[in-house]
Amino acid sequence: MEIFITLIAGVLFTTATYLILSKTLLRIIIGLSLFSHGVHLMLMAINGLKKGAAPLLGQGATSYTDPIPQGLILTSIVISFALTAFALVLGYRSYQELGTDDMEKLRGRDDE
């Protein structure tokens, strides 16, 4: 199962890298979002599939699962959602002000 999740994360990393290197701002934002999803899957794959009881005190289980990786992934999901929302608002506002989402035109080059 970990190998399958790692392969999916690799596909997400590859697609995100392609989108980040494009010229339009919306594709760059989608690429950053896909890259963060790839990181979440990679964190799950690194943790591995653990079987055991919930880490609660007072139960008679012999093995417990570690809640730290799930907490880190949840925190990373919240941070990446906030970053994506901020980038989308920034991209929309720049499109409203400048009328384009082309990165070459946003840089202010007079070559074209």
Rank of each mutant, 00 (worst) to 15 (best):
A9H: 07
I8W: 09
Y18N: 07
I73S: 08
D102H: 13
D66M: 01
G31N: 01
K23R: 15
I79L: 14
Y95N: 12
G71C: 04
K51D: 01
P67H: 02
V39W: 02
S80Q: 00
S80V: 00
A16G: 06
T65I: 12
A85E: 05
K50I: 00
G48F: 00
G71P: 01
K23E: 09
H40T: 09
N47R: 02
L41P: 04
L90V: 07
T75W: 07
S33F: 14
G60K: 10
S36H: 09
T100F: 08
L98I: 12
L98N: 14
Q96M: 05
G58A: 06
T62Q: 02
G71N: 07
A87D: 05
V89A: 14
M42C: 09
F86L: 15
A9I: 04
T75Y: 12
I8T: 15
S76D: 14
T100R: 10
Q70T: 15
S33D: 14
L49R: 02
I5S: 13
E2A: 02
S76H: 15
Y64N: 06
F81Y: 13
T17L: 12
Y18A: 13
L72C: 06
R93M: 01
F4Q: 10
D102T: 07
Q70C: 05
K23I: 08
L83Q: 10
R93Y: 03
I3D: 13
I68K: 01
K23Q: 15
L12E: 04
G99Q: 08
L56W: 12
L32G: 13
L74H: 11
R109K: 04
P55N: 06
I20H: 03
E2K: 04
I30A: 11
T24Q: 08
L34D: 06
R109H: 10
L34R: 03
G108M: 07
N47P: 00
F13N: 09
S36M: 08
G58H: 03
E2Q: 07
L25I: 09
I28C: 10
T65E: 06
I8P: 03
Y18R: 00
K50F: 00
I68F: 09
S36N: 05
A61K: 00
I77L: 15
R93V: 04
L98H: 14
D101Y: 07
I77N: 10
D111E: 10
G48L: 01
A53N: 08
L34H: 09
A82Q: 04
T62V: 09
L56A: 15
G71D: 02
D110Q: 14
I20D: 04
L72T: 12
A16T: 03
V78D: 06
Y95K: 11
L57R: 11
E104T: 13
L19R: 14
Y95T: 00
L56M: 13
S76V: 08
A82F: 14
G10N: 01
A61H: 07
H40F: 12
L56G: 05
F4E: 11
T84P: 01
M42E: 11
H37Y: 14
L83G: 03
F35A: 13
I77S: 11
G71Y: 03
D101Q: 06
G108E: 10
I20E: 07
T17P: 08
M42F: 14
I3N: 13
G91V: 03
Y92L: 05
Y64R: 02
T84M: 08
P55I: 02
H40R: 14
